[in-house]
Design a protein around this nucleic acid. Structure first.
Lengths: 121, 121, 121, 121
DNA sequence: GTGGTCTAGACCACC
DNA sequence: GTGGTCTAGACCACA
């Protein structure tokens, strides 16, 4: 977890979970680690971990079985994809696109820019 | 000013000032409107406006003459460009690029995606 | 805090914090008192205290963990030393030195002058 | 005049006048340039120049003959010396001395430090 | 609990 | 007129 970043810790956990799902590390029906395990592994306050679980539960990506744990929903993959796609197009694309143009870059520059500055990271 | 946005008001003012400089509306040596004028025009508290002025003064983009007002530095344009370029490449590009790839888009899709969803906005 | 002095309150707080670091009262990784605690202890408005924290954060001397507090950076001591040294040599020394010469004092007089007028103060 | 410096413009003018007197450029009975001449030469608002004249008049260093101009008082040199000496010892010495010690310098270092960093300035 | 932001309004020095 | 500082108090997100 990056405490100095602007993004809230619990959203960084959410992002991490979505990544796991998008990369098929976690698939429908999988039981995911408990709140306590997550909190310990990520060195985070349990309250903070809970917020991430609740967020994903609200979105229908996880579901909870009382006394057992949290599980990946059947349609988690599709939900994550559509959620991310919508966020990407509505929130991230316009700002990024305008900045890009204002700074004199074009879409075809991006691959090169990325590999140049973050290629090995 | 967009109060619902995540970005603080004073940073939105900073962005606006940078825009003015990038678009050559304000050039080296120009006196920019007073704190009070900005506060009235943008409908914010003078203290909020001052925070934007201070931020840009720290960056060397503006300078102050006591009792007279704020002025655009000689190298303001270059400073803004390099500041924005650095922020773009270091902070915005990697997250955007990774999301883009993860969602199955490529750089050549961006122009189309943008004009489709934000073309007339 | 000395309200009659020319130096702003928040810079007096900054000076005090730097002193703590120079005197090794606060060392790398220490959590320093919260904004509210400082404000109460020094009898200033929390906003005034925050300005001091932000100043030192910008200089890299403190860093912040959201919801937790402010901490002393690893290289805080070196940063304070170099900051103070630079300020001393660039800003304070020339004016002082010129005054000293103009008034007919020499460096070897200083110890005596000081102990005579401020020795027991 | 240095508009970016902390010291007020009118005090910078005062300092300049005192310098002239200490260096015997201006001596008792000399008529000094008019407010307007000073304002033009120093590229300063006439009001600002006037404040400097008034300050020195209050201290007894200058006197005014209505319709004629400002003149250097008979005891101007002694007044400036004692004024500066007092200010030096009371206000400047203690802060400077403490900083010097805290940064690990001693009086005997000053000549070298000065000539090294400001020798040709 | 932590800090971050914003408003409203005051007072000041300076030009 | 200009900006600089400080206070008081509010609301918010985050841990």
């Amino acid at each position: 977890m990056d405490y100095s970043e602007n993004r809230p810790i619990y959203m960084q956990i959410v992002d991490h979970f979505c990544d796991q799902i998008l990369r098929k590390k976690w698939t429908a029906g999988d039981r995911i680690p408990s709140v306590r395990e997550i909190a310990v592994k990520m060195e985070v306050n349990p309250n903070t971990a809970i917020r991430a679980f609740h967020y994903l539960q609200d979105e229908g990506i996880l579901y909870n079985e009382r006394g057992v744990g949290y599980f990946v929903s059947d349609n988690a993959f599709e939900l994550v994809i559509s959620l991310k796609r919508e966020e990407f197009i509505k929130n991230k694309l316009p700002g990024f696109y305008n900045d890009m143009k204002l700074l004199g870059f074009s879409c075809s520059d991006l691959d090169e820019l990325y590999s140049e500055h973050h290629g090995e990271g």
